[in-house]
């Protein structure tokens, strides 16, 4: 029986983390490969990177990325290979485009409005805190202080 709704709490049954032995010419390539597959999204999984997924397609795509990196081509080329075929969906780091402007700029925008909020608050709060005294009042205050100390 195939139930369309798989009831899960944490994860898919296909959980066995991907384990492949990969040989690289140098460690820089290995680092690039590992960083890349950690930032690319597996298409058939719920929400896993290529690195974490055990799905068949993820394995094939890891092979492709490995071939590209191992043959000395750039990371950009590996990314282009995938986005040409699957679109921006495969990138966990969304590229900066007109539609993602708000995504990348949003946090800064929120922070700035927060700082404006703080600034306005402080201006209101502290302006009342320091009460402006007239010349005469100032003199009276000084006298009072002297009396208290004396």
């Amino acid at each position: 029986m195939i139930r369309p709704l798989i009831l899960l709490f944490w994860l898919l049954p296909l959980i066995a983390a991907a384990v492949e032995v990969r040989e690289f010419d140098d460690t820089a390539k290995q680092e690039r490969y590992e960083r890349l597959i950690g930032e690319l999204r597996c298409l058939v999984c719920q929400n896993q990177s290529l690195a974490d997924s055990d799905a068949d397609l993820a394995k094939d795509l890891r092979d492709e990325v490995y071939d590209i990196i191992q043959s000395g081509r750039s990371e950009e080329e590996a990314i282009r290979f995938l986005t040409d075929r699957y679109g921006d969906f495969v990138l966990y780091r969304p590229p900066l485009k007109s539609v993602t402007l708000l995504l990348w700029g949003g946090p800064l925008l929120i922070l700035l409005s927060g700082i404006v909020f703080i600034w306005n608050q402080v201006k209101r709060r502290s302006s009342v805190a320091r009460i402006d005294l007239t010349e005469e009042e100032q003199q009276r205050l000084e006298r009072l202080k002297r009396n208290l100390e004396g």
Partner: peptide, 13 residues
């Protein structure tokens, strides 16, 4: 057999 063409066509499901 190896799914290469499938990948080139963006097949995922």
């Amino acid at each position: 057999a190896d799914g290469r063409v499938g990948i080139n066509w963006g097949v995922y499901g």
